[in-house]
């Protein structure tokens, strides 16, 4: 009985994500938890992962690429799982796991369960559907159980001082199917990382008329938060695609989410409905975001943001 958790070595904070995924796997078989990390930088990352409490060991596989192709990665996941006889394979529901785990499941000829936010038992899970408007309880008879998990939905286990063993993972050959040329250089002013930021300031199509995203970026910078965007803003070219929050973007749960000029379509709300405090600043008091927000201010964001910054700055 063991759980294999696959970690993205390129995540800005792999240890924080891993600690939550280990927290999520507590509801599973109750057996040993093994972490697997693959890539040119896997060694450096493995050291930090080894201090997460409650795991048996970290498997570390070298690969010549920093961004390992999913075909090569999936091969190693399958080999590691077979070697250890794992009955659960887990990765985060962000783009890393969302790309990897369905492939792994296809190779193992089982159906995965994606976007898990609650584990009822080792084979029964809760996940969102229809842009987060409905939750579904699904049970799988597949073995092994292949899952992607929303990290924010689970409390992290502590990270301690003592490190478990880091050992050599599978060394499958490279297959040469796909190859990454790296990330595009970005003009992104996004500051913090969306998945870990305590505060996220997001902008919508409401910024189109006032000359762009500067107010969002300024407020995020001042508050030490990350920048998010609605699809309306991305489609208008105001923000890069990877900043999009929602059903077809990122699903996040910051402590505070400040929406500037975002109407609050269900597809957008799907990405933030678990946020601690939703704040809406919108000229339209009837906008869905204003109706659902914990704190709603009716007003023009171009007037509100500068005075808000002033009022939140001491001295």
């Amino acid at each position: 009985m063991s759980v294999l958790i696959v970690i993205d070595p390129n995540d800005p904070d792999p240890v924080a994500v891993a600690a939550r995924l280990v927290g999520a796997s507590r509801g599973l078989a109750g057996g040993a938890v093994i972490l697997l990390v693959v890539g040119a930088n896997s060694r450096e990352v493995a050291g930090g992962l080894a201090r997460i409490e409650g795991i048996r060991e970290v498997m570390c596989s070298h690969h010549p690429a920093l961004r390992v192709p999913p075909e090569d990665l999936a091969q190693r996941v399958v080999e590691a799982a077979e070697e250890e006889g794992c009955d659960h394979l887990v990765a985060s529901a962000g783009s890393f796991g969302a790309e990897l785990m369905p492939r792994v499941a296809g190779m193992l000829r089982v159906s995965p369960v994606t976007g898990v936010v609650e584990t009822r038992d080792a084979e029964t899970f809760v996940r969102a559907m229809h842009a987060g408007r409905v939750m579904a309880v699904v049970r799988t008879r597949a073995r092994p159980v292949v899952l992607t998990v929303q990290p924010w939905a689970f409390a992290p286990v502590p990270v301690g001082e003592v490190a478990v063993t880091v050992r050599q993972g599978p060394e499958a050959p490279t297959l040469g199917w796909s190859e990454s040329a790296g990330l595009l250089p970005s003009h992104d002013q996004g500051n913090g990382e969306l998945s870990t930021a305590r505060v996220v300031v997001a902008g919508g199509a409401g910024l189109e008329k006032g000359g762009g995203f500067a107010p969002v970026e300024r407020l995020a910078r001042v508050l030490g938060g990350a920048v998010g965007a609605s699809r309306g803003a991305v489609d208008a070219g105001l923000a890069p695609a990877e900043r999009q929050i929602g059903q077809t973007g990122r699903i996040i749960a910051p402590e505070v989410y400040i929406a500037l000029g975002i109407s609050g379509a269900v597809q957008h709300l799907a990405g933030v409905k678990e946020a601690g405090c939703l704040v809406s600043i919108n000229t339209d008091p009837q906008a869905p975001m204003a109706l659902v927000a914990d704190l709603a201010l009716t007003g023009d964001l171009h007037a509100v943001v500068p005075s808000l910054i002033e009022l939140l700055t001491d001295g």
Binding site: P70, E99, G106, M107, T114, M129, A136, W177
Partner: peptide, 24 residues
């Protein structure tokens, strides 16, 4: 598919056939 939001059909096919894949 934006009804069940499972996001897996295409990548399951890639895994089944052992073909290359790119997501998103």
């Amino acid at each position: 598919a934006v009804d069940r939001d499972q996001g897996m059909v295409g990548l399951l096919v890639a895994g089944l056939l052992g073909w290359g894949q790119v997501a998103f």
